[in-house]
Nucleic acid binder design. Structure first.
Lengths: 338, 338
DNA sequence: GTGAAAGCGCTAACAA
DNA sequence: TTGTTAGCGCTTTCAC
């Protein structure tokens, strides 16, 4: 069942069928309907490979997810898939561990699959101009933007929250509740990822409040592993680390932290307050409900592909969209007791 | 940068290059190395579209996920992606709501993307021979198998647990702890999905223990929504429904149920015991840790694509793999107090 | 408004 | 062992 069959069936040439099917203006209405009907009747489905080959393109955009196990990304990915579909694009995604090299992966994928564009989900912040060039197609950074690299703003798009500012807000909520011994749960302070940025916000909030930074309160986890966050927090408590609140850079880590707290016999928020950033569905169901700054996940996914597709279709230039979080008032933040 | 360029660069014909690149035996060692070096030097990347068109295939397998928001599927999808990559196949996935028609979607996807095979993740159980035919390519059912349809066993593969038996086991654990008023939290009792199967196991366990089935204890949720499970359980408790334990057909619903229990002022497991099936990472971090029967998620994903690829490559016939769960002894099951 | 024909990059007979 | 050549199914000039 090829375009030839449809042509033969209608008694016309393949070029006419092609034109009719692709909505070209130079076909008579009669002919167009005839062809459309025939295609439907014959259950004709165009061959993408042939089409792509002839047009030397692919209408496929790639999504590189760094740290793919994080449930935070799932709704974003769904939104991307959906939006791409609406816009007539296909998606091929690739999951990387949080140690992977998303640039290399993107470049490789873009080349082998002849992608028109790429969205990088949850990457680092230190891309160089060379990195951007190596990808070879337009790209958008989703859930982060270039902070430490030398990338000119007009060479890529991005959609993200203001990580540092939001972290600042979260930590400030703790300070407002009277906490001064505030631990920070993160993956690293210098990995050029959101972890570093949110850590910066944490430091800034402390500084502005006149609270000296105590590095012993910076709890590092191995990657973004919940198990590691659990161990880290449990150990801190058992060793008698003096703190009354935790700012976690991610909901997942916060959930693990809460578990660790309860397992040591302490409670939330009486003994320890907890606040985080992300707003995944699961964290609504912790006991008490996690207080967190919710990122608009669906919007993020939608915007990311909208931005990309608009650039691809020449409808607009590269843009940088900053989204706001909304605070979920859970029950994990209470007054400082000690 | 096409195969022609490589050929010209080496001073040979394109067919020689093609053969060398694709590992055909009828090329001299010297020539092969020469071509390989050239390809690397020129950073040549084959054009998939052209290749697929010429070979009339695609080396792509599709994954249709029904109820894609369920975190239970995430590790399975990752495992599939990884295994497919190792075997030299690409993956294109599509998420469906739990109300979607996975057969229609699979058929459509298989045709438009010229897929070699499809894996259906989390579907129904009532496929007819016509359904199977409409997909048009080999397929494997992952996380379920055909129970109610008329599909001959040798027309498809599957990898799943024995849903009814595992549900039986879970409910039995509750009965062993002395519970007789056991609620069942599910999405539907007759939707031809795992929900129905696990419900059957629930009924069987009660029957074998001489406990009469009480339909008021069957708590239905809207789809697989956690919010719905939460409401359902909360309402049940507030209305004074008499039960001491819950068997949930999924971890996600169980987590929501626990939240509902705590929100009414009751506790787990003192007032209500909870047991589920799935074993997602998150349910390790509830307080107390959810007692559940863990499905081997990675293995499931691996096996699903292994089965499919083996069939595609003629290495084996369709197979039906039954996996076992391992019980995670959490802290949500206690003795019946009332 | 429609058709003929070239060609996208690659594979696979068939020759040599 | 290597080269020649004919497509794969589609889009797109260029004539008509």
């Amino acid at each position: 069942m090829t375009i030839k069959d449809v042509a033969a069936y209608c008694g016309v040439s393949v070029s006419t069928v092609s034109r009719a099917l692709n909505g070209h203006p130079d076909v008579s209405e009669d002919m167009r309907n005839k062809v459309l009907d025939a295609a439907r009747a014959l259950r004709y489905v165009p061959n993408r490979s042939a089409r792509d080959l002839a047009m030397n393109q692919s209408d496929t955009i790639g999504v590189i997810v760094r740290g793919g196990t994080n449930p935070f990304y799932t709704p974003i990915e769904h939104a991307m898939e959906h939006t791409a579909e609406l816009r007539g694009y296909g998606i091929v995604s690739r999951q990387l561990s949080s140690a992977g090299d998303e640039i290399a992966e993107a470049a490789e994928l873009a080349r082998t699959k002849r992608l028109k564009g790429v969205v990088l989900l949850g990457g680092r912040f230190d891309y160089s101009t060379d990195d951007a060039q190596s990808i070879g197609v337009p790209f958008v950074c989703c859930s982060y933007t270039n902070h430490f690299g030398d990338l000119p703003k007009d060479t890529y798009s991005s959609v993200s929250i203001n990580d540092k500012a939001e972290a600042y807000k979260a930590v400030h909520a703790l300070i407002d509740a009277g906490h001064t011994r505030i631990a920070c749960l993160l993956s690293a302070t210098d990995d050029q990822s959101i972890s570093q940025l949110r850590y910066d916000g944490y430091c800034q909030a402390l500084e502005d409040a006149g609270i000296p930074l105590d590095l012993s309160l910076v709890l590092k986890t191995n990657g973004f592993l919940m198990s590691s966050a659990y161990e880290s927090v449990k150990e801190a408590i058992e060793e008698g680390l003096d703190f009354t609140a935790i700012f976690s850079i991610a909901d997942t880590l916060a959930i693990a932290a809460m578990k660790a707290i309860f397992d040591t016999g302490a409670t939330v928020p009486d003994d320890y307050s907890v606040i985080a950033i992300d707003g995944i569905e699961m964290s609504q169901y912790t006991v008490p409900t996690l207080t967190t700054l919710c990122q608009p996940q669906e919007t993020m996914g939608q915007e990311a592909v909208r931005l990309l597709v608009d650039v691809l279709e020449g409808k607009s230039q590269n843009e940088h969209v900053r989204l706001k979080t909304t605070q979920r008032s859970g029950g994990t933040v209470g007054p400082a007791r000690r």
